[in-house]
Design a protein around this nucleic acid. Sequence first.
DNA 1: CGTGCGTGATTGAGAGTTCAACAAGTACAC
DNA 2: GTGTACTTGTTGAACTCTCAATCACGCACG
Lengths: 160, 160
Amino acid sequence: MSETRWLSACEQEIWRAFMSAVDGLTDQFARQLQRDANMPYTYYEILVALSEAPDRTLRMSELAGARGSSRSRLSHAVSRLEEAGWVRRQNCPTDKRGSFAVLTDEGFAALAAAAPGHVTEVRQRLFDVLTPEQIAQLGDISRAIMRGLGTPTQPPCPER
Amino acid sequence: MSETRWLSACEQEIWRAFMSAVDGLTDQFARQLQRDANMPYTYYEILVALSEAPDRTLRMSELAGARGSSRSRLSHAVSRLEEAGWVRRQNCPTDKRGSFAVLTDEGFAALAAAAPGHVTEVRQRLFDVLTPEQIAQLGDISRAIMRGLGTPTQPPCPER
DNA sequence: CGTGCGTGATTGAGAGTTCAACAAGTACAC
DNA sequence: GTGTACTTGTTGAACTCTCAATCACGCACG
């Protein structure tokens, strides 16, 4: 067990600013979605992932793995989304253990209704307050963090 | 209601990288604390705030306001922390409605035990994977976001 | 005074997440 | 084939957070 490398005053200030910003952002987005679309943020993400999949269908595992979600959490969430009529479960014919989650038309409609408000919020709270340089820097920083966490990353966007 | 300004492919890629990074980080920190110190991240933050206050004591409201927490959440959390013996409630003599939360010696000890692991994690997952320039950029970006959210910000650190 | 209104804090119910345990199915060696 | 180990997905209990309701108190105004 080696000596702890504490944060300098500078580092600590940056760390706290970062956490405040992130907290504030996620809180803002979560509230906006809950208020305007009556869905928690994680459910929105599930609907987005399904809407982009072929046939709007994904295996439960893939859906869980795509976002950093646990199988258990996803199972509970999909149960809820099923009650809402936004998602439907379907058995996998080739692997009898497996289940598919399928986005229903109602689910797609709910997502389409929720998206504009959410995107507007993201634009206002994030992109509009940063300069183009800062936006590019944020992309690089995020990818570096993801690499540090072992998350696979896509190559950065082509030059602006 | 004006037209929605959607995100470009570039912006969306940055947005998703950012959310993945943030999610991964907070998840990592939360798990590390839960595993090694048996406390949720928000409770850790409460202990930190108390440990820095004069007499390790704060009004419930101040404690809630300091972090973006609701009174209700804080009340529940302090009840838990009280059961653990880490915090103690104390009546306010000048305002009989008020309560103080006081960090106990056990609480301070628990915090002291948890801090090294947490700081090490923050250093490894965040500061070690970024260049000094990126760290400074992250500070500026975070402050810009906070301003956009209406959160008061401290002036940035003196030049490195 | 005392009535009314705003504030500080708590409570309980409902919703989401986590964790461990479990059932069911598949893969693979022997 | 059969047994063992791993994977997929679900479940229930415990825990945290949110929201609305509530209680107790302070403060100002008639």
